[in-house]
């Protein structure tokens, strides 16, 4: 009996030892894989041909945040219209990664729109759907580290605190994207954010003619150009992404063909064009059409 007990103890130690050994081997395999990838990348760098002394590599861009865009419209006097933002109830209808990424941006703009207009109940709904979509598109860690919803609800009514929280979310998102090389995701979701911001401004403008908002719509075309370049730099574009690029470029081309813009010549790079009423209407309608296509 004593012999059997001793043998059991010995075998237990042996089995535990084997478990450690198998874990070490697994980690070794992962390390070898990482090194192999790195060597492969190095070899690709060496294979590149030198055509000029200075060679442009892939470009990057920094777009303005949804909060800044919402703040700009708000300062221009854009008032809150309740049924204008995309309904949070539609979140479960977005099933493809592309749609989820775009609408993540759309809801981000809607959240900012609510916050700058002191609509905190509505903002809370948008924060929840943003978190839900974030989990689906690979941004779950952004919302897991802090109890974002609880902090938001604790600070309802305090605009400065809510805005600080929104900026904190933006920082976390930017960090996560940088750490995980999710630049392509950021291009897509920012496209959604920009389109929604433009949509909210366009719809407000068509309901109530306001020269200031018309001017801001004109200013936002700069962002469309940056987004367009960001999408063009994506190496593998799906058909949905290509369609998105086509529509954004159509908006840019429409803008640059306006008489008001052509009259500015080269100065359009530094001066805001004052669009005529019919030009504003055409631009606004194109944006509304694009946005409605994206959220279907």
């Amino acid at each position: 009996m004593k012999y059997i007990y001793n043998l059991s103890v010995i075998l237990s130690f042996f089995i535990i030892g084997q478990l450690f050994l198998s874990c070490a081997n697994s980690t070794n395999d992962e390390s070898i894989s990482e090194v192999a990838d790195e060597i492969s990348n190095e070899q690709q760098d060496d294979d590149q041909e030198v055509e000029e002394e200075l060679i442009d590599e892939d470009s990057q861009f920094i777009p303005p945040s949804p909060l800044q865009i919402a703040s700009i419209f708000n300062k221009a006097g854009m008032h809150f219209i309740y049924d204008l933002p995309n309904s949070p109830d539609l979140v479960s209808s977005y099933t493809s990664k592309f749609k989820q990424s775009v609408v993540f941006g759309v809801y981000s703009s809607d959240l900012a729109y609510c916050i700058v207009n002191d609509k905190y109940d509505e903002a809370s709904s948008y924060l929840k759907v943003i978190r839900e979509l974030g989990n689906k598109i690979g941004l779950e860690t952004v919302f897991q580290s802090d109890d974002i919803i609880a902090k938001f609800e604790d600070n309802i009514g305090s605009k400065d605190s809510i805005i600080s929280l929104l900026i904190h979310i933006q920082e976390n998102t930017d960090d996560y994207i940088a750490e995980n090389e999710l630049d392509e995701l950021s291009v897509i979701y920012f496209s959604g954010a920009w389109i929604e911001g433009m949509y909210l401004g366009s719809k407000t403008l068509l309901e109530k003619r306001d020269g200031k908002i018309g001017g801001i719509l004109s200013e936002q075309i700069t962002i469309a150009e940056i987004i367009s370049n960001g999408i063009k730099n994506m190496p593998d574009k799906s058909d949905e992404v290509k369609d998105l690029l086509d529509i954004i470029e159509d908006i840019i081309d429409t803008y640059h063909n306006f008489e008001s813009v052509i009259n500015l010549g080269e100065d359009v790079a530094f001066i805001d064009a004052i669009l005529k009423d019919d030009e504003v209407t055409l631009l606004a309608n194109k944006v509304i059409e694009l946005r409605n296509t994206l959220i279907q």
Binding site: D45, L54, Q60, F61, S65, Q170, D174, T222, I226
Partner: peptide, 27 residues
Amino acid sequence: RYDGARTTHFTYKEYNYIKEIEMGIVQ
């Protein structure tokens, strides 16, 4: 007020080269 950030990674090579960032200014 924080608006955005970009981390640019690069590899030193045997020739000079440029990485360019395009930054949007809306107001």
